[in-house]
Design a protein around this nucleic acid. Sequence first.
RNA 1: GCUGGGGUGGCGGAAUUGGUAGACGCCCAGGACUUAAAAUCCUGUGACCUUAGGGUCGUACGGGUUCGAUUCCCGUCCCCAGUACCA
Length: 935
Amino acid sequence: MDEKYFAKKIEQKWQQKWVESGAFNAEAEECDGRPKFYQLEMLPYPSGNLHMGHVRNYSAGDALAWFKRLNGFNVMHPIGWDSFGQPAEDAAVKRGVNPRAWTEENIIAMRGQLQRLGVSYDWRRQMYAHRPEYYKFDQWFFLKMYEMGLAYKRMTQVNWCSHDQATLSNEQASGGLCWRCGNPVTKKDLEQWFLKTTAYTDQLIDDMTQIEAEWPPSVIKRQRDWMGRSEGAFVDFEVQASGDSLFYCPLVDGITSASDIGKGRVRIFTTRIDTIYGANSIVLAAEHPVIQANIDNFSEKVASKIAYIRAENTKPKDHEVEIEKDGIDTGLKAVNPFSGEELPVWVGNYVMMDYGTGAVMSVPGHDDRDFEFAKKFGLPIPTVIVSEPSASAGERGGGLDPTLDAGDNAATDKRPLPPAYAGGSDLAYTDYGVLVNSAVWSGKSSEDAKREMADFAEEHGFGQKATTYRLRDWGISRQRFWGSPIPIIYCDTCGVVPEKYENLPVELPETAPFSGTGESPLAKVPEFVNTTCPTCEGPAKRETDTMDTFVDSSWYFLRYADAENEILPFDPEIAGYWAPVDQYIGGDDHAVMHLIYARFWTKVARDIGLLKFDEPFKRLLTQGMVVGETFFDDTSGKRIYYVPADVNVTRDAKSKMTGAVSKDGKTLKYAIERMSKSKGNGVDPDEMIEIYGADAARLFVMFAAPIENELVWNEAGIEGAVRFLQRVWRLVYKWERVLSVPPAVAGGVLVSTSMTPPATAGGTDPARQLRRKTHQTIKRVSDSFETLQFNTPVAALMELSNAIGDIVVEPENASEDDIFAVREALTSLVLMLTPFTPHTSEELFAVLIGNEDGMLANSARFPAYNEELAKADEIEIPVQVNGKLRSRVMAAPGTANDELERMAFADEKIREYTDGRQIVKVVVVPNRLVNIVLK
RNA sequence: GCUGGGGUGGCGGAAUUGGUAGACGCCCAGGACUUAAAAUCCUGUGACCUUAGGGUCGUACGGGUUCGAUUCCCGUCCCCAGUACCA
């Protein structure tokens, strides 16, 4: 028997055994009485290299998969490849390689890495986004959505470089310049396919209540923000022009219908209709149809300003740079339908055409942006809402003088003003309050007024309650090769015709001329483009755009359930067994897009009749990034990865994330950065496995920090993990010779800790104490897994290992009880380590039960917790005097309060404090502490 | 700005949710073993004071509630993340 721990040897051995025995293959068998558990980590893009972030992700997922497996669940734990996408195509452009070959090679490389890491996947279920067997069903879903009216084509603006004749992504057009030629980017109208995510907005928001408790709050919040539901009202303002111009109000997606268009009216959206008496103007976006339709009626000065604002608005927005408010009075007049007041119509750069109606009423007294705008242009700032207590007083005659600004009004107005105004503050009063200066509505609360005024508007035909959203339909057209072709055919006779289901998949050609110009490469492949119309069988052309790769990841988790189905994306019954995913783990960079698309897709699949549930992922865990700690020589720019031992980084430098220290007269810059090859601070998982072993790498990654925190990679820490595993290893071999009796086997299933406990001696007996520690640890570790903590159970297991090592008797002199306790402790330790270090556990478990073919996955169970055994015979009760710890007494658990109090007063040290002092009171918390309060 | 999450030793981080602050690990120091080194094992390790026993302070800062606060409340300062001028 090996007495030394050779990670490499045992890891290869067990990896091979697992493959040969299909240890992790999961079947959805009805007769199998076990409950199912679907563990999933976000699928990787096959870049060709695993990084430590992947290791962290899969280590956590594997730990849970093992934990559930050992607890009697039928666990499905699959993996696949998000293998469509830009890098493969970039490689084709730059290096002339074939994207398919490049992708397949990368997958082979990464699969090898995952296998060396020993992750317990059911490899039979792999899905590959780029293979026709998979993307056939992207197309299948597309056709279904087309039939359901959820897929449609419309004109939209894309970034366009007229020099290169190319469309650009937002990233490629950053700064308003083409990344390739540096010429200015313009907008170009292009027909694009969209999926109607907005048809599900309310469900996407409302169904969050189903998952809220089990998803990180930040993700829930970001999703809500992304959908951006606002409840408010539309209000129509009559618009009067000097000429006989025709005015109309624009349609806004899905919000209103053509019949809502009021001739000569402009519709605004507001969430604060209660402030409408405070409107000093209405402000429209420069692109607003009313403005554009009437552009020739404006003076040259006004028209050019509008054009300027419009151009400014097309610039890419950088949220860190606050854009200064700008605008112009168009000379048009609008009538406030509530007050009858005539208001100027402005164009403002802060009004967005693609939100709400592209028009707002400007209420500077109660909106920060309107306030800033009014300040800049010297517009009146009336007050119509005041904070609660002061508002009950009646209206003063005449109200505020709207021609005066806030300060002037404040000077003449005796009524208490909202706090924001009282000190001449540069702020609007944006809270709810009580209405003033609002005719019959004065005195009402904001809440009541909002409801009643919206109803009033509706009754009188100039408005209605309305809800607007930020979420837009999902544009899926990509002018790229390496994606799933959109199964649509254009026929001169029949128009837009969907491909027939039986003709799927619409296969990608072997290759295409990659120009990198941003035009669809497929358009230059005649064999692909030219086809026959499915309807009239006349000559026709195929759609040459491909789908966004987010399509692939929107339903892959369902494919795993039935990965080889050739007729349907998956069999509803089989998917119904496995799905939804019980535990999903991934980076929070996917908090919005991927998770919204997948939720959307699930709801569509449900409506197609494939699924019976609403939400795809029951529980979500977002793991923090793995970052590298880097020093680099400021003068040479050379990076020195890992902190040199003789360099002391100050806390200050660390907290700022960047900093500098000097060494040998040189300045070393310190930085914490996302690990990557290009930064030179990357850690290659293969290297880690080679040096320390997969188990140690995984154990350390789990132990080093809470899973949701950022993890600063540190080489020294992993050595600690190796040391721990070696200690466990030595402990097992130290006791091996006396642990010859195998643990009980019940019904073919090894039940490691259900052996009859031997008669226990007193509470200080080492065997009894070890058993107590064992069972306390079982509880701690189990609870930790349930609450998705991975660092604390490792600490608990280290404590248990220390406790076994601390046992005073040598194996030769051990009593039956001692041996029993040690066997139980070691077996439990090894079993509980399995989720973190499966290879080492398999090996040691085989040693412990004396069976080379142990195979934990099939035969073992997680140790059972016994509350009785975990109970302490005696606990330490701290004794405080005036809240300060002064002594401790030992007592049996459950000792009565008065007995504890008596013991405390009997304590010598406590006596020194209490003697001759007046006792005010004594607080006794059972099993916790005694606190004596002295005067 | 706004929203969310945070601030605990030299470092990563524990703390049963109001009850012994600093578990576990890393780093560091001392010791044992060794011809020596490595490895391993043992001891120490929040700060300050003290001959000792022990004491004082200590969870970003300032207050408060409480017998008792890392935990709850108010205020301030920092850090991280997200972010839409969303009407």
